[in-house]
Amino acid sequence: MNGRQQAVFARAAQERRAALIGYFPAGFPSAADSVRVMAAMVRGGVDLLEVGLPYSDPLMDGPVIQAAVESALRVGATTDDVLVVVDRVSELGAVPLVMSYWNPIERYGLERFATRLGEAGGVGVITPDLTPEEAGEWIAVTDECGIGRTFLVAPSSTDVRIERVSRATTGFLYAASTMGVTGVRDQVSDAAPALVERVRTVTDLPVGVGLGVSTEQQAASVAAYADGVIVGSAFVRAVQEASDIAAAEYAVEALSAELARGVRT
């Protein structure tokens, strides 16, 4: 695993808590403002920052994130802009990963992307629509560049698949808590603890649980069994509901602090 990513989980484990992993799309509402929002997330207590790469066909995302990435694309966000955002937030002390659908990475060039991400201070990439079966070249390239790879497991994954996905993963393992798309939910699915338990039997990799977490209480309940608590749509919604960027930073920092308390209970 990438050393800086490993350190995040090691420190959280030492403090007997889960890591807080926060997602936000680069370029929303603008490249500069997305950096301000991400900085606020980190100030509030986000340990690992997922920088979203906006894509035209985000088929794993619910309406909140869809609207944000559509807006980012309308103002012209590109892969180069995303890498600049990674560079900025890294300078501000964040530990950034990129979350991207596969086609933009393939189009940019696997090696070029992994190399530039490393130069920008990125520690890993989460690829929600790439499975290990199609990832041969990506595995070789990321190994070469020291970039962590995060693949996903889902409640529907068989044990054979969980093992295959774990073997291909060199970052944390992303456990989708529910069968569905991203978005805020009243309740985090009860399928998640069982999934994490199955994952534990085949790997020592840290496991992050995402999809549906938005409150301190939910963060606390997920932190009880996972190594990382992943929150995305709640941050995006906080920005969408804010009247201006200063209000957005304030709301996001407060939400981040609340979730950071959650992962410590």
Binding site: L59, M60, W102, P128, D129, L130, T131, E133, E134, F151, L152, V153, A154, P155, S156, S157, T158, R161, V165, A176, M179, G180
Partner: peptide, 11 residues
Amino acid sequence: GRFVPEALMAA
């Protein structure tokens, strides 16, 4: 090939 979320692989 298959470029889909893991959740669909079983299906």
